[in-house]
Amino acid sequence: MTGTQVLSSSIAQARKWGGVALLLGVGLGHGPAGWAQSLAPAQAPVQNWSFKGPLGHFDLAAVQRGYAVFAGVCASCHGLTQVHFSDLAGMGLTSEQIAALAEAWQVPDGLDAEGRLKHRKAQPDDALPEPYPNAQAARAANRGAVPPDLSRITQVYPGGPDRVFALLTGYGAPPSHQSGTGSAAGGGLVGGAHPAAVAGGEGGFANPYAIGHRTAMPPPLRDGAVVFTDGTQATAEQEARDVTTFLAWVSNPHADSKRRLGVGVALYLCFLATLLVILKRRIWSHVRK
């Protein structure tokens, strides 16, 4: 329940900031033409995701790298409340790896004799811990905005994974009209090329893909924010791409199994239907039209 409260209040917050953005955009004149006038989120460039389309499948290496980004960056403010550590086995991890991964997290473990909150290392059947004990704490820590829960984010966020990626990489950039290329809004901008445009402050952060073109989320990613164990270069754009893949997987973890099942069943049914058509024609061949 808190998840949606969170999201709605952050949207309300974003709307409020929309007004501020308009003032800033017009007053200071650093918004590109057409950007400040329309406060509807810009159309996110279409990306070529591995999981896209009816026959796509998740690039599990990217999902695992994306988990590293989530754990290292996003998890400090965002929760994945519906996900248990054991669910992460679907990323292609063994149960030993899951146990090791869970141990890196602390989860609340009731109260001690003095009534203080105790913590322990997480176990595979624990849910991923929420970053804040409640919405009030989240709001207090984030200047009034509550970071949304990410369990189903690519499903419930209008624009889906394309917009998540665009939001993560689009700080301070005018809306990009390029499509199909991965380097649309570029990680370089996020890395701090335009610090003036990115500047936060009370009004939030300029981002054409946010509602009202302002978001309370500071630019989360920068080059080298995490170290990928598979040797992939951790540019901000690569991190955004991988974490979006991870979030898309978390939003719909069984999509691959479903598509695989679909291919088998559809082929079987086509074969069966062909046989039945032949049989039907034979049976009905005796009937005078």
Partner: peptide, 13 residues
């Protein structure tokens, strides 16, 4: 069977 085929396509793809 034809309906099941359509069903599978919608459900899975």
């Amino acid at each position: 069977v034809v309906m099941a085929l359509l069903f599978t396509m919608v459900m899975c793809f």
